[in-house]
């Protein structure tokens, strides 16, 4: 910013006019900077923050899980983020004495239904890619402390395509963390739905990983519009 008087004249309007421009820039910069930190101004986007979690009946969930003795539905909650995201947590039974809840989380991202909605979208509630090696490590350390964690080499497949997962084991128990992003709106997703993110965490007694993944393998989504399954596509 040219604040130094130029051309040897000690008296110059430079500083003044320079300031007006600087002023505008710094006001804008301040606004951008401050909305992202603690030192913010009040922003007018309350509708963009997540609502608190509220309890829902399992019947209201957009998912059906296969019956399971070890992993029954204990509770279900949902919340909205803006008009775009609906998130669900399905807490499942935990037959182990390990800390942490077994659960399936589902984030449904719909397309905004108005121009305004398109302009003021809330920040995405899940990252893409869902995990990096670093974030995965941090997550497993938090979810499965003091257990031996292994990232599965090969993806598995459920009704909605391939998914990845890690396993964690101690002497007695095994745990899995699986994640999946469904974005194939060309073939699988209805046009109103932009993406569905699934994440599944389960710990059980023993070492039968497949049994622990069974609910995830067998789940089916029950959104208002039909999500076609990966198998359906073969017949089309």
């Amino acid at each position: 910013m040219p604040e130094t008087p130029i051309s040897g004249s000690p008296i110059s309007g430079t500083a003044r006019i320079g300031r007006r421009r600087a002023a505008l820039l710094s006001v804008l910069a301040a606004t951008t900077l401050l909305t992202s930190g603690c030192a913010g101004w009040v922003r007018d986007n309350l509708t963009q923050s997540p609502t608190p979690w509220r309890r829902v009946q399992p019947a209201a969930l957009p998912v059906t899980l296969p019956d399971s003795r070890d992993f029954p539905i204990v509770a279900a909650r949902m919340r909205d983020t803006g008009a775009v995201y609906k998130s669900y947590i399905v807490v499942l039974g935990n037959p182990t004495v390990l800390p942490g809840e077994n659960r399936l989380t589902i984030d449904v991202q719909t397309l905004p239904d108005s121009l305004f909605g398109a302009l003021v979208q809330p920040p995405r509630v899940f990252p893409v890619p869902l995990y990096t090696m670093e974030t995965l490590l941090a997550t497993t350390k938090r979810e499965f402390p003091e257990m031996t964690v292994k990232v599965a080499d090969a993806a598995r497949r459920n009704r909605y395509g391939d998914y990845d997962y890690v396993t964690a084991q101690d002497g007695v128990n095994s745990c899995v963390l699986a994640w999946q992003l469904i974005t194939d709106h060309k073939r699988m997703l209805p046009e109103r739905i932009e993406a569905v993110r699934l994440e599944y965490r389960a710990c059980g007694v023993g070492s039968n990983i497949r049994a622990m993944l069974a609910p995830f393998d067998g789940l089916s989504l029950t959104l208002p519009e039909t999500v076609l399954e990966a198998q359906d596509l073969g017949g089309m």
């Binding site: 509770a75 935990n94 004495v97 390990l98 800390p99 809840e101």
Partner: peptide, 10 residues
Amino acid sequence: EMKRPSEAEA
């Protein structure tokens, strides 16, 4: 204590 509040509530 085990951070399993949903089961605790039940």
